[in-house]
């Protein structure tokens, strides 16, 4: 048993157990107590927890030489273990964890380095102060309300008259072309088809994704050949990224260029449930943009087909 419970093993084990416990307890307690916090992962959970995990791991490794390159690789292994545990116990999706991994690795490594210098100094006041500061920041952030909404807009020129494009904007047949965006290629669902029960205001619309996900939508603005707005009325809850972002509304604006071509502008509004927004916002923007591009390229292709 002693051979298994080495400081190296304990560093990985205890840091991950503490991390898992903090996240699990936070989710459990906040969901029970504060409705507005349920389902949201905060900045503190993604930054403070890995930082603390790094400090804890290094506490177990403090009696051995810890060159920089070794700390970088150990922080990577520890991040990988944390990701595997999140997949198993927190039921997070693979793509969501791929997106999380750079953040986890860098904050884990920063924690490892901070721990290395803390334990080298062996100053208990300093150690307690650092942990207390992290705890305060964690609780303040977790107990705060988080709200982030954004809009992404993309534009494309289609070499077809506006009436033809409009027909394909409201509903389009199945897109069988291969995915180009790397996240779609590794398994993130991409939009493949859109159906509408009619071409009128209030009509129900469905956006179908490659894995069978269906977004239920309702047309809220219908200005033929000009403006289509649809609200998302129901969307799948899934451990993958779609559980952490809500698409709120979509819009297609069409502009007749007067030369037989049409400029299509696609707008999407979304709300994030994962923070920090400065990090996840980049991903959300990129994913939404690539959803737009895939849909608009398909609309362009079928509208331009003779």
């Amino acid at each position: 048993m002693k051979k298994v419970l080495t400081p190296l093993f304990n560093g990985y084990l205890v840091s991950n157990l503490v991390g898992l416990l903090i996240i699990g307890l936070t989710k459990y307690l906040t969901a029970k107590t504060y409705d507005f916090l349920g389902g949201t992962y905060t900045l503190a959970e993604f930054l403070i927890v890995p930082f603390l995990m790094g400090i804890i791991a290094v506490w177990f490794w403090r009696h051995e030489p810890l060159p920089g390159s070794r700390l970088v690789s150990r922080a990577w292994y520890n991040s990988f273990i944390a990701i595997a545990l999140s997949f198993g116990f927190l039921r997070e999706g693979v793509i969501c964890l791929v997106i999380l991994s750079p953040l986890l690795w860098s904050f884990m490594l920063a924690g490892c380095y901070a721990g290395r210098y803390m334990f080298k100094r062996d100053n208990q006041t300093l150690n307690v102060s650092v942990v207390a500061l992290l705890a305060i920041f964690f609780f303040v952030d977790v107990m705060s309300e988080h709200h982030y909404e954004n809009m992404v807009a993309d534009e494309m020129v289609v070499n077809a008259p506006v009436s033809t494009v409009w027909k394909n904007v409201v509903a389009y047949k199945r897109n069988t072309s291969p995915d180009k965006y790397w996240l779609f290629k590794i398994g993130m669902p991409s939009p493949v088809e859109s159906t509408a029960e009619g071409y009128y205001l209030g009509a129900k619309r469905k956006c179908i994704f490659s894995n069978g996900y269906v977004f239920d939508e309702k047309i809220t603005t219908y200005e033929e050949n000009k403006n289509l707005i649809f609200d998302i009325t129901n969307q799948p809850r899934d451990p993958e990224i779609m559980g952490h972002i809500d698409i709120l509304r979509g819009q297609f604006l069409l502009k007749d260029n007067g030369n037989g071509t049409t400029t299509v502008t696609g707008n999407s509004w979304y709300r994030l449930y994962v923070f920090p927004a400065w990090y996840y916002g980049i991903w959300a923007k990129s994913i939404t943009r690539n959803v737009h591009i895939r849909v608009m390229e398909h609309i362009k292709e079928i509208s331009e087909a003779r």
Partner: peptide
């Protein structure tokens, strides 16, 4: 954290 990114 910035320095950790430099290390990586």
């Amino acid at each position: 954290v910035f320095d950790a990114w430099l290390k990586i």
